[in-house]
Design a protein around this nucleic acid. Structure first.
Lengths: 144, 144
DNA sequence: CTGTATGCAAATCCTTTGCATGCCT
DNA sequence: AGGCATGCAAAGGATTTGCATACAG
């Protein structure tokens, strides 16, 4: 598992310890390919290993965000969602305000435009978050 | 004050009462030209009128969002920010991760591109939120 | 060993709600 | 009068933190 090796490598460089819990959490996160909240992750782990506290999940997520493995987003539901970055391109999101579905999309044009404007403002871009709220195709067809 | 007249008009149509508190809150919001959190608004009002509860501020903000006067955003700080819409175009934001400054910018290209892609997905756009995190010019010049 | 990391529970921050009361219309 | 709005305090949800203990390097 290449991603996990990278995680170990960076952990060493940053003096971070690879504990049993952290290792389980990280592997779980790399196995997920959709967005999850801290608590959802905690519940998944609890079912499978039942030896990881909620606090550790929260703390580990923060560490992973700092290390650049995981991205944190807010979709307007009052809590934070995460997704691992490795192997995932920068992308934008459609969020359905009826069913909550999240659809990812990618646009070079948007990215280029943002970098261009940022340049004009002297702003150094770190992370782009484009979220489009609306109604997905399925919900529209169901009527309303 | 034209905006306030519109607010009264829509309130009537929607059977909403115009109370002293609501009136003060609305006028305050229309006088603000930057983003604010519910609690920041509450504290501003408390200083000036000291007769409005936190609950009323929260409830009124929700009403105003529903009425379409105010937009709700999350800038990744774990709480919601608001800004009034009337007279404000749709726009995107640069958020400085050092000093917290928020810079607004506008791009037709981004909007057009989003509508185009949404069309391809059959997604009906309601609201677009583009937030670019990074370091502003001033903070970059201060070093780091 | 030494410094991180963990677990637990308590604490915090932001926001929402139940209920009795107040006040527009 | 009738119903929406308010205030208060309590409840709620998400996240963070203090502290003693455990464990990786």
């Amino acid at each position: 598992m290449k991603e996990y090796e990278i995680f170990k490598e960076i952990s060493h460089r940053q003096n971070k310890k690879i504990t049993k819990q952290r290792s389980i959490i990280v592997k779980k996160i790399f196995s997920l390919h959709k967005h999850f909240s801290a608590d959802e992750l905690f519940k998944m782990l609890k079912k499978e290993y039942s030896g990881i506290s909620r606090a550790t999940v929260y703390r580990t997520l923060k560490v992973l965000v700092d290390m650049g493995f995981v991205e944190e987003r807010e979709f307007g539901r009052g809590k934070k969602y995460y997704e691992h970055i490795i192997g995932h391109d920068t992308h934008s999101h459609f969020v359905c305000i009826r069913c909550g579905k999240i659809i990812e999309f990618k646009s070079e044009i948007i990215e280029q435009e943002i970098y261009k404007i940022a340049g004009e403002y002297g702003f150094e871009v770190d992370k782009i978050s484009t979220i489009v709220y609306g109604v997905c195709k399925e919900c529209r067809e169901k009527g309303g």
